[in-house]
Every structure is written in C-alpha cells, then in structure tokens.
Amino acid sequence: MTWGLTELEWQALALSLRSSVLAVLVSLPPALVLGWLLARRRFPGHAMLNAALHLPLVLPPVVTGYLLLLLLGRNGPIGRPMEALFGIRLAFSTTAVVIACAVVSFPLMLRAIRQSAEAADRRLEKAARSLGAGEARIMATVTLPLLAPGILTGMTLAFARSVGEFGATITLAANIPGKTQTLPLALFSVTQTPGADAAAARLCVLSILLAGAALLASESIGRRLTWEPQT
C-alpha cells in the first residue's frame, strides 16, 4: 500500500487518468473540425449531424456502451475486420475504456468549441484579411486563439466526464481489475464487497478530488482566457 491505497486502487486511478487524457486527445481533432463546421457552415443534414453527435449526451451511457459493443464486438461490423485483419480485439480491452470515455465525453467538448466558434466575432477575421493575412495565418493567429477558451473548457469538461464514466465503460470494456477497471468501476466493485467501507471511502474521496480539480481548472482557464470586452 502507498498513501493508503492498494495496488489495485492505484491501477484503477492510473487507468482512469490515462484513459481520460487519451480520450480527450483523441476527441480533440474531430471536435475542432466538427465544432467549427457546425458553427460556421450550413449544409444539408446539418441538424441531423448535430443531433447525432450530441446523442451520447442524452442517451443512457449503458445504451451507448451496448451500441459500441455491437459495433466493436467480435461479430460487429468494425470489431470483426479489426480482429481478422490486424488481430486487434477492441471490446473488453484497455482501448475499449478509452473509446467509451471518448464517445461519452465527445459532445461536451464539441458543444464548448461550437459555442465558442459561434460567439467569436467573425469581423476580426475580415480585419485580418484586410491586413494581408491568408486563410492559414488567420486560422492560426486569429480564429484558433479566439476559440482557445472554448477549446480548453471543452477539454477539461470532457476530461472530468471521462474520469467519472461508468455505464458505457462497464458495458463495452467490462470490469477487469488491472486492465479495464477504472476508478468508478473499482468503487462499484468495493461497494458490492462486504466490509470494504474504508476502500469505498478512499475511492470516493479520490473521485471527488479529481472531478473537483478538473472543474476548478475549467473555471480558472475560462476566466483567464476570456478576452476582455472592448466596449
């Protein structure tokens, strides 16, 4: 035991942190592209795409996990060729934890980026264009910095949601200690074990600390990076 935690609890904590960070990193590029597209472009199927992308936010996480299992399981349209061609088993693996976290937390990141892109004053891009800047420079020096508060807020919210993810993870990745058992899953296990109240309390405190830290970071980033109004 170290710092009062058992090895399995440490493993659960490490897996939760690692899979949440990976889920955020994997989600970021599509969230940026799709958030920008939904905010700035109108195209056929816009509303449908928007609704589909936000679905994991409102679906019971177990439903999301089950649908993912149908897709990525050994007989699923993605899982079967992945195993046949590359020998990769997605379901019930550590990768499945990351996938479950990424899918469930994706709408939070997308929403923050989209709202940020909608709120950004597009005339600033016109001003940059009039100063001779090309589109790539405008994206790098004007658009992305203006979206930065939304991007960072979305990342921290998605991280916090991933750390707390339970339903989709247990359905897609199961609850295998040392392999797919994240902090909430470890907590679930000890609550099913008689006499494990101390372990449950430790995991509870850890979860609260992690979620609280992520929310505080999100608030702090949002405050620091919000550009002062010019009026």
Partner: peptide, 17 residues
C-alpha cells in the same frame, strides 16, 4: 488580402488576444 486597402472599423476591431 491583396487589395491593398486598409480598413478602420467603427468599433476598432482590434485582435483582443
């Protein structure tokens, strides 16, 4: 970007960042 026309807007439109 290639017109060579400088613009000054009513509300300045400075880059806030």
């Amino acid at each position: 970007a290639q017109r060579g026309i400088g613009l000054v807007f009513q509300d300045g439109l400075l880059f806030p960042h």
